[in-house]
């Protein structure tokens, strides 16, 4: 995959998730980060660090991004959320404007 089309999301613990830009842009916050006219550091490097999101949650978030793309294109499947993650996920969602 070419670098321009992917973005690296880094969790609080330092785990790196390389995902498609298209998927990442499901988050309005990330979209703004990457498209803002001034070249922010994120745009320059193609990586975003989330010091307040844990690896487990970020992984789930990445899964959600892809699921959401599929859902939007008409493939209606269930997205399973483990109950113990739900609170944290919701807070992350608010943060990411997803």
């Amino acid at each position: 995959m070419r670098r321009e089309e992917t973005v690296k999301l880094i969790s609080a613990e330092g785990f790196e998730f390389v995902i498609d830009k298209k998927a990442a842009m499901v988050s309005q916050t990330i979209r703004n980060m990457l498209t803002s006219p001034g070249s922010f550091a994120e745009t320059e490097h193609g990586e975003v660090t989330f010091p307040e999101i844990s690896t487990t949650i970020l992984e789930k978030i990445c899964q959600y991004f892809y699921w959401s793309l599929q859902y939007a294109s008409g493939k209606e499947t269930e997205f399973h959320i483990e109950p113990e993650l739900s609170l944290e996920l919701m807070m992350a969602a608010n943060y990411l404007h997803t």
Binding site: N32, M33, G38, S39, A41, E42, E44, T49, F50
Partner: peptide, 26 residues
């Protein structure tokens, strides 16, 4: 200042002590 001065934000990023979008947003 950056926009007016045509500065590269990367320099700014270093100069400003590690500010990036995520951090500002947060």
């Amino acid at each position: 200042n950056h926009i007016a001065g045509g500065l590269n934000l990367e320099e700014l990023y270093h100069n400003a002590g590690g500010l990036n979008f995520e951090e500002l947003y947060r």
